[in-house]
């Protein structure tokens, strides 16, 4: 049997909103470690990896490892029915082909349950080694989202360049060009407003803005985003999820033409 209970049910809603447009179907793996998922988009250039550690839940029981194949659009439909303050319980019995979502209002005066059919999904799992990155940028997630949105009105791709000067986001399109430079800024009153740049090597990579805008849908999950760049690796865009885990997006860089 598998069962988890999360008092902050809105967190699961935000996770689904962050990934449902990128991935259609995914296997959610439940183990003693926690609730995790790895899936690629249909073109195999972007990957999302989610981890919610077991200790972050108010209740977590996993008698044996199970993998639940879920259509994310359908799961998002169900989670939309949960109130933002609702307590969410997810339950699956061994050997059944469905998962149950239960939503309890904080005052316990409304209790709903939804059963979602599971699917057989033949998903490919990639081994992602820990890597040393040439540059790691931490910045306010809302700022990153704003930059991606603004640049996508000018061009289709973004060049992210990290130098001693800061991190530069550039694009070009039919109407012209745009460059946005963010400098390191650690002197802010609130740590969530800081921009911190760790650079070992200068790096400059080009990515499709369409994907960056999709990743930015995770913005409500975290006040800061971490962008890890190396010249020979996919970029990692990471949003930490409270004390529980993370959602990481990997995106292959544009090939030099």
């Amino acid at each position: 049997m598998f069962e988890l209970r999360l008092e902050q049910g809105s967190l699961l809603k935000k996770v689904m909103e962050a990934i449902k447009d990128l991935v259609n179907d995914a296997n959610f793996d439940c183990s003693a470690t926690g609730f995790s998922m790895q899936a690629m988009d249909s073109s195999h250039v972007a990957l999302v990896a989610l981890l919610l550690r077991s200790e972050g839940f108010e209740h977590y029981r996993c008698d044996r490892n199970i993998s639940m194949g879920i259509n994310l659009a359908n799961m998002a439909k169900i989670l939309k029915c949960a109130g933002n303050d609702d307590i969410v319980t997810v339950k699956a019995d061994d050997g059944t082909d469905s998962v149950t979502f239960m939503f309890e209002s904080p005052t316990q005066d409304k209790i709903s349950d939804f059963e979602l059919k599971l699917m057989d999904i033949d998903s490919e799992h990639l081994g992602i080694p820990e890597a040393e990155y040439d540059a790691i940028v931490r910045m306010p997630s809302a700022e990153f989202a704003r930059i991606c949105k603004d640049l996508s009105s000018i061009g289709d791709t973004v060049v992210i360049s990290v130098t001693k000067e800061g991190v530069k986001f550039s694009t070009r399109g039919d109407i012209g060009t745009a460059n946005i430079v963010c400098r390191q800024n650690t002197s802010v009153d609130k740590p969530e407003e800081a921009t911190i740049i760790e650079m070992k090597e200068m790096v400059s990579l080009t990515f499709a803005l369409r994907y960056m805008n999709s990743f930015a849908k995770a913005t409500p999950l975290a006040s800061q985003v971490t962008i890890s760049l190396s010249s020979d690796l996919p970029v990692v865009v990471e949003y930490k999820i409270a004390e529980m885990g993370y959602i990481r997006f990997y995106l292959a860089p544009k090939i030099e033409e």
Partner: peptide, 14 residues
């Protein structure tokens, strides 16, 4: 996308 490598180019399948 025509201009991007697949992720399998960088990461091995498990």
């Amino acid at each position: 996308d025509i201009f991007q490598d697949a992720l399998e180019t960088y990461f091995d399948s498990k």
